[in-house]
Design a protein around this nucleic acid. Sequence first.
RNA 1: UGGGGCGUCGACAAACGGUAAGUCACGGGACUUUGGCUCCCGCAUCUGUAGGUUCGAAUCCUACCGCCCCAGCCA
Length: 563
Amino acid sequence: MSNEKPPPGTDFIRQIIAEDLASGKHSTVVTRFPPEPNGYLHIGHAKSITLNFGVASEVPGGRCHLRFDDSNPETEDAEYIEAIKQDVKWLGYDWGDHLFHASDYFEELYAFAVHLIKSGKAYVCSLSEEDIRKYRGTVTKAGTGSPYRDRSVEENLDLLGRMRAGEFADGEHVLRAKIDMAASNMKMRDPLLYRIRHAPHYRTGSDWCIYPMYDFTHCLSDAMENITHSLCTLEFENNRELYDWILDNVPAPAKPRQIEFARLNLNYTVMSKRKLVELVDGGHVSGWDDPRLPTIAGLRRRGVTPEAIRDFCERIGVAKANSTVDVALFEHSIRDDLNTKTPRVMGVLDPLKLVIVNYPEDESEDFDAPYFPDDPPKMGTRKVPFGRELYIERADFMEDPPKKFFRLAPGREVRLRWAYFVTCVDVVKDEDGEVVEVHCTYDPETKGGDAPDGRRVKGTIHWVSAAHALKAEVRLYDRLFTEANPDADKDVDFVEHLNPHSMDVVSARVEPSLAQAMPGDRFQFERTGYFIADSIDHTTDKPVFNRIVPLRDSWKKIVAKGK
RNA sequence: UGGGGCGUCGACAAACGGUAAGUCACGGGACUUUGGCUCCCGCAUCUGUAGGUUCGAAUCCUACCGCCCCAGCCA
């Protein structure tokens, strides 16, 4: 890690925690990551995970709980539980014994509800859903009290008991907090605490037919777990007043503090669950683990490392301003991590045949090439076979090159990495004028890639032996959308901005050492990018490599500037 | 036009009344058997706008402008 990162521990949340520790308000810190098991985690969740687990790990005795916020039986499912746990673990975090479910607190939560009723702070409301909405008023007009607002404690207790007992149908009654129908904060206009749902819950089965709402569940779950700092995203700022109200009006075992921070937005992708679902269900991507998706599963399959994700989350910081991070910063974190840990190999993505006319027919030789040229002992070497017929990258040859083109062209000499200097002496074209072969001579004196006479070449290109190379399917992934903000235009559906080249599949030729590659192995294909043998489709017989991220390409910039 | 938040370089983001960090991106250069990596240099006289307080303001005050969130029996 060579570049500077923001000094750790200085964001506003860590400052608050430091103050609470210094003042003696808390002796340690307890946070929680509270996903709802109704979907897959994405890189936005990674920011929250990194924050919550990170902050806890920085304080002696600190801990972070993994709590499934599962109070809605209609959308949640056990299938998400394991996937979420796997993702958090893969990111490198350990909740130890602190795995919880809000659904485990249903009984305690019910008791708190009874307490609120007994103290006249909650009531059963029998208005229809539509009427509740009408009575709520609007942001500029105060609401009006429900006609059921002044039911007696006895009646409320009786009604809630019968709600729980299943005597009523969905929607017949709800339990509401009695706060203030004229509150300027809409969240305080007698918010719903419980609703009737005759639906089986993935964990509690048919034990309950009433389920607590988020605002009631979350603060009390935090309190019961002795959470000190409850970190959530900005859209819950309005909920904080209610969070505090509930804790102040029941005998809560603790008084956690909710602190909101800005969620992560990344350009050239989408993060909302609704849009992700649309991409998956609409068949625009292959599934939740499609390597083009910002889901943790997708990034994992893409080949992105957990270290890169964590580094990225540290670099972006934590603040309260809505912002959109440039995906280039994420790509930097990915390259920065992969640069130091991937072996270098050669693979030709767009093969062009090169014939060395003065090299003996039917002969070949092996070169020892270091896997990590910047520090050869680090990863050792592999044999790379060389022969009369090779494949080079089509983009590495130009018949009529511009000034600064340092690669192969008629009359030009370049170095074939780890092999010889070659000079282009002829070009073979097909009837359409397309170059199908380039002929070169090689200089035997330059074996290994150095000229004893001190002769220099401007370019070094990669290659594979035609006789020995392996064919491989290579999936060239690119940004999923062509627009930085796919949903900026309200009149255009975001799927209209899908990048038609978000995945280009090419038939490549790779060096034979890659026959040893196992699913999940990562490499740098020199001069091209970082790749990973696909975890699902890669086999020795039929290699499949995913491009994680291309290398930076300053030549591309030169070309772009020339235009 | 009710309430809650937020506006610092193209993108993130520090600075907590003492005279605008850092990262990414971008531009230039060095090095180079990857046009990769690495290294060096440059990149806000200025902090949404306008006033005010102060010896001194991104930081305090006032007004205005802009953006986000809240009217699910979702979380």
